[in-house]
């Protein structure tokens, strides 16, 4: 990276460290921080969308739809989360391959599960056997995002469902008295007002989501945990210009500090948003703000 890095053996401590921390592999770990942020940026809205759909379904007047929504919330929330992560990655992969298999190879006559194997025709493989490396990585990441969205969607659905029921009944009655249709009541009265009740739950969820991102490692994505283990392990002078002992402890300490900072900053930002949202609401928080002003 720097000009003076040509011969690391001759460098002093600070310069050595500067060179060491900017090797190509370290660039990979900094990039993987980007992967984590990307995951959060995609998952958070996706989970919110899943949650909104789930909550709307759960309070639907059509009974089967309501069962579907309630079932989704109950099942995903009742089971250990990590098991779900491990389960969904394989299950979704096999599900997609099976769909493609049914579409692309309709005249396949063997069973899909043969003993301990899951066999689909070559055209249905995901990603295709001859696809580039980045396609494999992107597909893995996509599966991870979908898994996160499904699991956290259930939690978000629960929060939003509670928030929808927390909107004062009088508000809805007034809307009905003004002759609004159920659809108008829902979109113009309920949805705009529910956010202030949902925010404490959602911000809690956001914190948990941040803290769940290291689980990407279990889903086979090359994330910060993967790179911390790779880079931290003892290196001898034969394989690298920067030999060092077992530094994995320090790498994970750095990750710990990174997550602490991240959650702390989120906490501060979420507090601000809460203040903003409470403004002018018919809640005790809003009342306190009105009195203070």
């Amino acid at each position: 990276m720097f000009g003076f890095c040509a011969d690391p053996d001759t460098l002093g401590n600070v310069a050595w460290m500067a060179c060491y921390l900017t090797t190509g592999k370290h660039m990979a770990i900094y990039l993987s921080v980007g992967t984590v942020l990307l995951l959060l940026a995609i998952t958070a809205p996706a989970a919110l969308a899943f949650g909104f759909a789930g909550a709307s379904a759960a309070r639907s007047r059509i009974l089967p739809l309501s069962w579907l929504g309630r079932g989704y919330i109950a099942v995903v929330r009742g089971v250990p989360d990590i098991a779900f992560f491990l389960f969904f990655v394989i299950a979704l992969d096999q599900f997609f391959e099976w769909i493609r298999h049914e579409v692309k190879c309709p005249d396949w006559d063997q069973p899909i599960r043969q003993g301990n194997d899951f066999v689909v025709c070559a055209e249905a493989k995901l990603p295709l056997g001859n696809a580039a490396q980045w396609v494999h990585e992107t597909y893995g990441f996509f599966l991870a995002v979908l898994t996160f969205a499904i699991v956290f969607g259930a939690f978000a659905a629960n929060v939003l469902y509670g928030a929808m029921r927390a909107v004062p009944r009088a508000q809805m009655e007034t809307a009905e008295a003004y002759g609004m249709s159920p659809r108008q009541c829902y979109w113009r009265i309920l949805v705009p007002q529910m956010w202030v009740y949902a925010l404490p739950g959602l911000s809690n969820l956001w914190m948990v989501l941040i803290k769940a991102t290291p689980l990407l490692f279990l889903l086979g994505v090359e994330d910060i945990v993967y790179w911390a283990r790779e880079l931290g392990g003892a290196k001898t002078a034969r394989f690298t210009d920067y030999p060092h002992g077992d530094w994995r402890m320090w790498y994970f300490l750095a990750l710990l500090v990174f997550y602490l900072l991240f959650t702390r900053v989120s906490e501060i930002v979420l507090d601000r948003i809460m203040k903003r949202l409470t403004h002018g609401q018919a809640t005790s928080g809003g009342e306190a703000q009105r009195k203070a002003a």
Partner: peptide
């Protein structure tokens, strides 16, 4: 409370394991 609630348990496990290893 801040340190243990603010960081992922997964990372805490990793850190503790490698710290004990050292």
């Amino acid at each position: 409370i801040f340190v243990f609630r603010g960081s992922p348990l997964f990372i805490q496990f990793f850190f503790a394991y490698f710290a004990f290893l050292s």
